[in-house]
């Protein structure tokens, strides 16, 4: 028999702080796909905010911290293409000149995956047991799409969700305007971008917008709310795991009882 692979779940800072249910959904999917999941508790963030702000020193320190925490696992999986992309592509670049960490960074990079593509491409798993009898639309988050080539995988799995009707966006692969600190440095430009995205979402008539990255989703959800649109935003893992029972992102508690 094959041993169950040991997966270190890198929850990502946004899931940790804003939406723990996505972390639990991810763990549940990984377990169903035959993995043993562990969550190192000293994990913080992948370091992208520093890395993208030009603060390589802080980013490298955070990268070393993350690598030390996760290198014991067979795989590192994150419910985010952006953070997985950071570990996979940027850690080796960031630590290329670090005698101790250069090889360790590459070793972790090679074993790091975004959740959905890990389930389909590495585990070959599609045993979805969930239902979501609504129209949904899907936003391809940029890093996952362009750094990791995630495009068909989420759609393959969404197809197995009972009752779910996928209504494609006109421009599913155009940036939502989040971009980490970009959205607070250039809020007006970011606003124009997220408005285009929301026009596109609303035009599909879908009740729910899904994506694989919480950053994009908080941006989209926050703007949907400000514009008073009825569409709700959720992370794809919640739907795939069948755990989307609580309020949507930014959904009010009291309305649900």
């Amino acid at each position: 028999m094959t041993a169950r692979p040991q997966v270190g779940l890198f929850a990502t800072c946004l899931v940790d702080l804003y939406r723990p249910s996505v972390g639990f959904a991810a763990a549940s999917l990984l377990e169903k796909a035959g993995c043993d999941v562990a969550v190192p508790t000293a994990q913080v963030c992948c370091g992208q905010p520093a890395y993208n702000a030009g603060d390589r020193k802080s980013a490298a320190a955070i990268a070393r911290q993350t690598i030390s925490l996760f290198e014991e696992f067979d795989y590192v999986v994150a419910p985010s293409g952006s953070c997985a992309g950071m570990l996979r592509h940027h850690y080796p670049d960031l630590l290329a000149d670090d005698a101790d960490f250069a090889t360790r960074a590459s070793a972790v990079a090679d074993r790091t995956w975004e959740l959905v593509s890990f389930l389909t491409d590495i585990r070959g798993w599609s045993g979805i047991d969930a239902s979501w009898p609504k129209g949904v639309t899907y936003h391809d988050a940029c890093s996952g799409l362009r750094e990791l080539g995630i495009k068909v995988q989420p759609r393959q799995l969404l197809e197995k969700v009972a009752g779910l009707e996928l209504r494609e966006l006109d421009a599913p692969d155009v940036c939502c305007g989040f971009g980490g600190t970009f959205c607070v440095k250039y809020p007006e430009v970011s606003e124009a971008m997220v408005d285009d995205k929301i026009d596109d979402i609303v035009a599909t008539g879908a009740a729910t917008v899904l994506s694989g990255d919480l950053g994009c989703l908080m941006n989209i959800a926050g703007r949907l709310s400000r514009r008073g649109e009825a569409v709700e935003a959720r992370h794809i893992a919640e739907i795939l795991a069948g755990t989307a029972t609580g309020p949507a992102i930014g959904g009010a508690d009291d309305g649900q009882g």
């Binding site: 562990a38 508790t41 696992f73 809020p187 959800a221 926050g222």
Partner: peptide
């Protein structure tokens, strides 16, 4: 302000994932 000029900030679900995991899944922390 950069965020809330154009967007609302979704309220966090409550508790951090790490704290809740430690409570609900003790021992599965590597």
């Amino acid at each position: 302000g950069g965020w809330t000029a154009a967007r609302d900030l979704p309220t966090p679900e409550g508790g951090t994932f790490i704290d809740r995991w430690q409570k609900e899944m003790p021992g599965k922390t590597g």
